[in-house]
Design a protein around this nucleic acid. Structure first.
Lengths: 251, 251
DNA sequence: ACCACAGTATGGTCTGACCATATTTCCCCA
DNA sequence: TGGGGAAATATGGTCAGACCATACTGTGGT
């Protein structure tokens, strides 16, 4: 009998997740609060410890629980909030499966960074982190070192937007693209152009010019990833399946 | 072996995940391929079946593996690619923990929808799904029914952008906001204004006007979710709109 | 007051068993 | 020979119980 859509009885660990979620919503559990131990939870919910552990793995993967071994106030499972790590894992695996293309990731990052820079400019954000990252970048010698502080610069922009969700997205996207960032620095043969872009972005945010901040970010990312992104309004071409091979038309 | 990592001993299930990830990258595993059974994998990797199962829960949570019981070609664990489901779970839990505010989610959705609409307009996307959703919305009577087809309309916009990552983000964001969407329809007391917005969006995409599509989406979402944050540049100029228009030179 | 050591609570891992489900195999009977 | 049903089997799902590694806690001796 094929073509049957089974009802998929809930598995035990799914029940555990639902119960914990219910406690979060109902009992007002918050970040930092401690969950009962695995054995105790298993007894309370009438499931085996294995099922509790599978539920913990899921919650840990989603970035809402962290576990420490040992004994004492710091041991056990705690509620946390780390969406960025979860997003990074997700992107990394789906990129590995070739079910997300590099272009899609770069495009998404361009979208978020433009948005973040525009918001940061409009909100009169604190620029100290941006300025510090700029100075550190000036003092670097290797591509890896440069990329490290470059990351700090871009993360600071995201944080200055004041939105933790887009910041998490931006962090994980950037994480997925780290090795391409190093390649980009080496391909460009120097960081002068990138630094000029950075100062332009910094200036635009400092003066509260949202449109200029957004445009500066776009130009910057197009320099780092030439030919990958298509701005809305670019002439149509034949899709994005096999674009990585001829991604050098910006030159 | 020179150095030991004293801080974070790798857990067995993390090894399993790393091995599977290596097979994906190295052996060219693709979506649809089948993984070895839990028992076989445990034997190959010299870990217990419990550890394999915990790894499976993680991969399942990230939307890259799906498991079926039974026997035969359809049983066992398969590689899939469902980032949207994973993102939905992530957002739901973090919203529940109150570590992401509704405003942040709505803002992120606004960003993605504006971007998607602009891209769809610029790419001359297929409008049949959009048109069909519009007609179905006209024929509905209840708020729930309307929201259902409204979702189809907005998802169609995201898909028309041609980016699976932003589409997945948009799907999960919308999923998190479903109940607020129903509330919005009931609060507005009718769907006339929303439908007018929809037709304006549809028209803009059809005519390839990216800036207008973006502006139409923004007005639409501000009608549905009043009180979300001002666009960047609202204080001094029409920054975001101008910035979009600047890069949207359609010809 | 201090320090060493035993106690203990915690997550991490493993083993082996059994259950539920779905396909495959095989054998009996029409 | 064909069909149908029973048995075998492969798969994930669940459980119980044990042991280990870790890190705090308490206790007793100096």
């Amino acid at each position: 009998m094929s073509g049957w859509q089974p009802v998929r009885r809930t598995r035990a660990f799914e029940d555990v997740i639902a119960q914990i979620e219910r406690r979060i919503a109902g009992d007002g559990l918050r970040v930092g609060d401690r969950l009962p131990g695995e054995r105790q939870l298993a007894e309370q919910l009438r499931v085996s410890r294995s099922s509790v552990r599978e539920a913990m793995r899921v919650l840990e993967t989603l970035g809402v629980v962290s576990s420490q071994v040992g004994r004492g106030p710091d041991a056990g499972a705690f509620l946390i909030s780390r969406p960025a790590e979860a997003l990074s894992d997700l992107l990394r695996l789906h990129l590995g499966l070739s079910n997300l293309s590099l272009e899609e990731v770069v495009d998404a990052r361009l979208m978020i960074e433009k948005w973040s820079a525009a918001h940061a400019a409009a909100h009169g954000a604190d620029l100290s982190a941006l300025t510090a990252a700029l100075e550190r970048m000036d003092a670097t010698t290797t591509a890896e070192e440069f990329v490290e502080h470059d990351t700090a610069f871009h993360v600071a922009i995201a944080e200055a937007s004041g939105n933790r969700l887009t910041t998490a997205m931006m962090l994980s996207l950037r994480d997925s693209l780290r090795r391409y960032a190093v390649e980009a620095v080496e391909r460009l043969g120097g960081t002068a152009g990138l630094m000029a872009d950075h100062r332009r972005i910094h200036r635009a945010i400092a003066t509260g010019d949202a449109a200029e901040a957004s445009a500066a970010v776009e130009d910057h990312l197009r320099r780092a990833y030439p030919g990958i992104s298509r701005p809305p309004g670019a002439e149509d071409d034949e899709g994005f399946e096999r674009q990585q091979g001829r991604s050098d038309r910006v030159g």
